[in-house]
Write a protein that binds this DNA or RNA. Sequence first.
DNA 1: CTGTATCCTTCAAGATACTG
DNA 2: CAGTATCTTGAAGGATACAG
Lengths: 112, 112
Amino acid sequence: MIKQYGCPVELAVDVIGGRWRVVILARLKEGAHRYGELRRLTPGISEKMLTQRLRELEADGLVTRKDHETVPPHVEYSLTEEGRSLAPVLQALYDWGVERAARTGARVGSGA
Amino acid sequence: MIKQYGCPVELAVDVIGGRWRVVILARLKEGAHRYGELRRLTPGISEKMLTQRLRELEADGLVTRKDHETVPPHVEYSLTEEGRSLAPVLQALYDWGVERAARTGARVGSGA
DNA sequence: CTGTATCCTTCAAGATACTG
DNA sequence: CAGTATCTTGAAGGATACAG
């Protein structure tokens, strides 16, 4: 089914919305990461969610999956050109999140 | 319950995430709007959702509600200073949405 | 015009266990 | 290491009717 959006913001939210997508994208913005690294870097996410989101992001053309075909397995995820085009959005979200945390006193991990 | 975030992006998504919040905020970014205007400007939203989201945004300090106390009722919603601080985020989402739509051929209303 | 109230469905997400 | 499979739950959202 082809979806009809009321405005561009709605489209953007549809692609990067949800609990985990932008968090994963924010991690990959720093550089390529292995599956296990992403899992460690994303506290609270389950393996199921991580795999599911990665598959969706792949399908949306924002992330690429590189399987090194080794034993034991070694798989790396990184942003595509399209994924990197999200940089301004991720940066804006990050900056606002920092300010908001300062104003509200919310607890936020280092992000490192 | 105090929530612990893994990174600032997660916090930002928690506040503006969901199907409708940013769409409503994007509308109010243009200026104050009445309840009925917002409903018309946000195709697909139900009255329940609109009211619910507005109440949440109010509680989060992003939106203010001005009741003119008239009969028939006249209520206006607008962004608070905190809400306006989201402008860069909304702009980034909008811009990316426009680009994405061009690349994927998605259908997007004027947004006007 | 600006909402509330109620009911119902769907879907994201969590928990847990298992596999190549 | 990098996943898949299954089950369950909780919240988000939709439909509809009603109210000040």
